[in-house]
Design a protein around this nucleic acid. Structure first.
Lengths: 157, 157
DNA sequence: GCCATTTAGTTTCTTATGCAACCATCTTCC
DNA sequence: GGAAGATGGTTGCATAAGAAACTAAATGGC
């Protein structure tokens, strides 16, 4: 007989609990101070990083659903934080980029975001932080690989 | 001027990405094989661990919303995986416990859950895994502490 | 013992999320 | 050069999750 499975020592649970706690506090901060949802903030962050970009590109960068990107973009455009223009090379695509106002908002948020992160990681050393990031990436990759397997198994029979 | 904030080196994002990837693959496995949602599975796991329990107690153990617990319990009772009885000492509370059928289902799921976890952690050593768990807990605690602060700041002014 | 407050749990409403279907355009292969 | 399929994006729908209001019972002061 195998030992009991303890939920709070079970990785998927630990991960979800940590992620929930963090995103709850972060999300409510963005909301309260800047009236931004997390998806909206992600678009802003990535647009600041890479400049003009198609939505499809943002989907890959943020791992968000294309619907989520479309809706977040819509709201940001309405608030004039982001401008949307046609892509010369592809009639289907739309190019997003930050407006001056969007840039200003980014400049206001970024330091706060960093401050939050710092507090979250206050108990960890530089090396631990690096290790944590690396492990999260590895676990994430393992998960997507598993999902891939499941999909293939589903497709064949 | 401060350096750019890179989304994919930003802890809340990394955490959420990893957690999403993991819970997606896990959730679809539970769903497909056992017709259980993640909240339902959590209740089963904890009930197996601690035996008979009030819903309130399950809320604390699983960190789920009381509404989520109520709804998951409802479904499990309907499927006769869990039985619900009155609490002698407290007329408001209801005691949940696994039925024979629920226990059998647990016995079927637990090994699979462990196998998934093993694959997710395949790339990590024992020590790394322990470190990962410990760090996730610390980050989670930091987040709930931050949330506490925010609440207090909100209440006073 | 009785009112005020707190707590356990459910119901209801609102919002978020994700999938599927869809339209428009682009690619490619004959 | 014109189908057949693939791709970027939006819309619509169904379900999940969370907050708030509510009921019923318990606790605590007086």
């Amino acid at each position: 007989m195998s030992a009991l499975l303890r939920l709070d020592a079970f990785l998927p649970y630990r991960l979800s609990a940590a992620s929930n706690a963090v995103s709850k506090v972060i999300a409510s901060a963005y909301q309260r101070r800047f009236e931004l949802s997390v998806p909206e903030w992600r678009l802003i962050a990535v647009l600041r990083e890479i400049g003009e970009s198609t939505q499809q590109n943002l989907v890959q960068r943020t791992l968000m659903d294309k619907v989520a990107v479309s809706r977040a973009a819509e709201r940001l455009v309405q608030r004039a934080l982001v401008s949307r223009s046609e892509d010369e090379n592809d009639g289907r695509a739309r190019l997003l980029s930050l407006t001056r106002k969007g840039l200003a908002l980014y400049d206001a948020i970024a330091p706060e975001a960093r401050a939050y992160e710092k507090q979250l990681l206050a108990a960890l050393s530089k090396e631990e932080i690096a290790a944590l990031h690396a492990m999260l990436v590895r676990v994430q990759n393992a998960a997507t690989a598993l999902e891939q397997n499941a999909r293939e198994r589903d497709d064949e029979p």
